[in-house]
Amino acid sequence: MSVATDITTAQIWAWLDTVPDPEIPVISVVDLGVIRDVTVTDGRVKVTITPTYSGCPAMAVIAMDIETALAKHGVHQLELDTRIAPPWTTDWLSDKGRARLETYGIAPPQVAGGPERCPHCKSTEVEKISAFGSTPCKAQWRCTACLEPFDYFKCI
């Protein structure tokens, strides 16, 4: 195990980019856009996170996963700060994250308010099943071409 001495904020960001979202493990917490700030002062690391939805139960797990991941890299003096303003938006999802969502079978958010295409067969013939889904950030849609249901990452 290495010991944190001259760690840089860029290094912390890179480590955080290996921490998977607990509910959608193909994207990282950095891809999700919940990491708002990273500072390093005299070896003390401060990470500022923001919740996706105000009641998202994954936030506690995300905080714990960040602590565990950074501790593995020798970061033991960690302060986790929560910030709600400005509020999280799906605009903060990374391009890498959006692409990985689609490969995983979750249609990425679109400003138009619905998925652009089916993540499975890529047909644009899709319809909404429900405005909500298995987690606060998703809705349920269905492809009328290949008939597969799929999750859509809500655009907020």
């Binding site: 009641g55 139960p57 429900s130 909500f132 298995s134 349920q140």
Partner: peptide, 16 residues
């Protein structure tokens, strides 16, 4: 679907 929608709505409200 409505069950899930109601539970998610409740979750948002309790988060707020």
């Amino acid at each position: 679907e409505e069950d899930i929608a109601l539970a998610n709505t409740a979750l948002d409200l309790i988060g707020q």
